[in-house]
């Protein structure tokens, strides 16, 4: 299936798109975000986390230095960043990626830096900067395949 395309023309639009996508996510889902500095990866994560029930959107900040942040929503939301990781396989294992996938939803910025380390069955979102405020999102849901056991749908908003 070709990826879904979305265009946003403002930060608010990106947040709305994130909230919309959140309704389609379930525990065990991994979302890989790809886009240049300033593309809006963290902004989209803010929208997704808000859609998953995070009350205080200000909690969503860049995990570049802290590597991982966890937000309380209807289910735990884990926000990771590979920007600084040099040995992502070992580092993600060390941070507990498998445990995170078992508990909640995992959103990964700079996913292209270690695509082979992330679960193959994942959402792929590419963000392109198309203007000062406009962005194009290319969203590829996971290809159908064996779903992890114990999978539960997220509540719809």
């Amino acid at each position: 299936m070709p990826p879904e395309k979305y265009r946003t023309s403002s930060l608010a639009g990106t947040l709305r798109l994130g909230r919309k996508l959140a309704a389609r996510l379930a525990i065990g889902d991994c979302v890989g975000l790809v886009g240049a500095l300033g593309a809006g990866k963290t902004a989209l994560v803010r929208g997704i986390a808000s859609g998953l029930g995070l009350a205080d959107q200000r909690m969503v900040s860049s995990p570049t230095f802290v590597l991982v942040q966890e937000y309380p929503g209807r289910m735990p939301v884990f926000h990771l960043d590979l920007y600084r990781m040099s040995y992502p396989r070992a580092e993600l294992a060390d941070l507990g990626l498998d445990e995170m996938l078992g508990q909640g939803i995992v959103l990964v910025e700079w996913a292209d830096r270690a695509a082979d380390v992330l679960p193959n069955r994942r959402w792929r979102i590419d963000i392109e900067i198309t203007g000062r405020k406009s962005r194009t999102f290319s969203v590829q849901p996971p290809q159908s395949g064996p779903k992890p056991a114990g999978r539960k749908r997220a509540n719809r908003i």
Binding site: F65, L67, Y83, R84, M85, S86, Y87, A90, E91, A93, D94, L95
Partner: peptide, 11 residues
């Protein structure tokens, strides 16, 4: 040398 904080190495 590695361009960032490396937790696996850090710990």
């Amino acid at each position: 040398r590695f361009g960032g904080v490396v937790p696996e190495i850090a710990s």
